[in-house]
Each structure stands twice: as structure tokens, then as C-alpha cells.
């Protein structure tokens, strides 16, 4: 069966990047539909990161959309130091022409990779398949 979303991209000096749009999560749209809630989406470059268990968002993206924290208790273990709590937000990650995933993403305020404002981790990659070709320095992302 063909995947619902398929993308082939080059692996840049910053890693495998993909442009996605970020918007409000499903819960607030469900709760406040018809109330005039502004529902903007913002297009950002995102890093596909197999070393990340979850999704992470730059604080500027969160503030620009006007997201509210939905879960304060994301405990995150980075490469150094002890786990600590990060604010988290329910968001829609929109791929291509409208393939959407609803996920919870942690806020990255003091962390920025060149060229990206979002990290897509294994919470998204587990949806199907990520393949890397060293010969062509490219990747294929498939999602269901």
C-alpha cells in the first residue's frame, strides 16, 4: 500500500531538512470551533532527527502562532545533564499538500540549529519509514 505522504530530499550540511507547516492542535480546534479562534499556520524548515524521541519547536514559532502550553511536564534528557521539565504544546504538523499529524512538541528556547526551527523525532518517524542513501546523499520519508 502506498504511503499517505512521501518525500525525497537532499541531506544538507545541517542534516535532512524538510519544510512543514505548524498550526494549532486538534483539541483546541475541536473545543473552540465556531468561536472565531484565529487558526494560522507557519511554514518552517524542520530537521528530521532519529536521535530525538519527540517533536521540538523553536519558541518563535510557538509565539507567532499563539500556542498555549498543553502539558508542562515533558521530561527531556539531553546529551548532557539530568532530565528536566520543558513546556510542551499540542500542534498539527502539516506535510506537503495537507497530510497532517497531531503531536505534542516541547519548546526549545535556548537551542537553535542553523537552518531549522523544528525537530521532527521518532514520534513522527514511527508512522512508517525513513531511508538514507549515502551514495546519493538523499533521504526518503514515508508517513501513514
Amino acid at each position: 500500500m502506498a504511503p499517505r505522504f512521501r518525500h525525497r530530499g537532499r541531506v544538507t550540511a545541517d542534516g535532512p531538512l524538510i519544510r512543514v507547516r505548524i498550526g494549532h492542535g486538534e483539541s483546541v480546534r475541536r473545543a473552540l470551533s465556531g468561536t472565531g479562534l484565529a487558526d494560522p499556520t507557519i511554514e518552517v524548515p524542520a530537521l528530521i532527527d532519529t536521535g530525538a524521541m519527540g517533536t521540538y519547536l523553536d519558541g518563535t514559532v510557538i509565539d507567532a502562532i499563539g500556542l498555549r502550553a498543553a502539558r508542562a511536564a515533558f521530561e527531556v534528557q539531553t546529551a548532557v545533564g539530568a532530565p528536566h521539565l520543558w513546556d510542551a504544546y499540542e500542534v498539527r504538523v502539516i506535510f506537503g499538500e495537507g497530510y497532517e499529524l497531531n503531536v505534542f512538541g516541547a519548546r526549545l528556547d535556548e537551542y537553535a540549529l542553523p537552518g531549522t526551527r523544528c525537530i521532527l523525532g521518532r514520534d513522527i518517524l514511527r508512522r512508517r519509514h525513513l531511508a538514507y542513501s549515502g551514495r546519493t546523499n538523499s533521504y526518503v520519508l514515508e508517513l501513514d
Binding site: D49, G51, A52, M53, G54, Y56, A73, F74, E75, V76, Q77, T78, A79, V80, G81, A82, P83, H84, L85, W86, D87, A106, R107, L108, D109, E110, Y111, A112, I119, G121
Partner: peptide
């Protein structure tokens, strides 16, 4: 709760430092 790992965050570039309960 099992902590989420983010292996690619370099030293000194972590999020808001709130001690975990």
C-alpha cells in the same frame, strides 16, 4: 514518566531548566 531523549542538543543549548519532580 520515561524522559524523552534529545541526543542532538549540544552542551549549553538546553531548554528552560526546571528541576524534574
Amino acid at each position: 514518566e520515561r524522559p524523552l531523549t534529545l541526543a542532538s542538543v549540544p552542551p549549553g543549548r538546553r531548554g528552560s531548566k526546571v528541576p524534574a519532580p
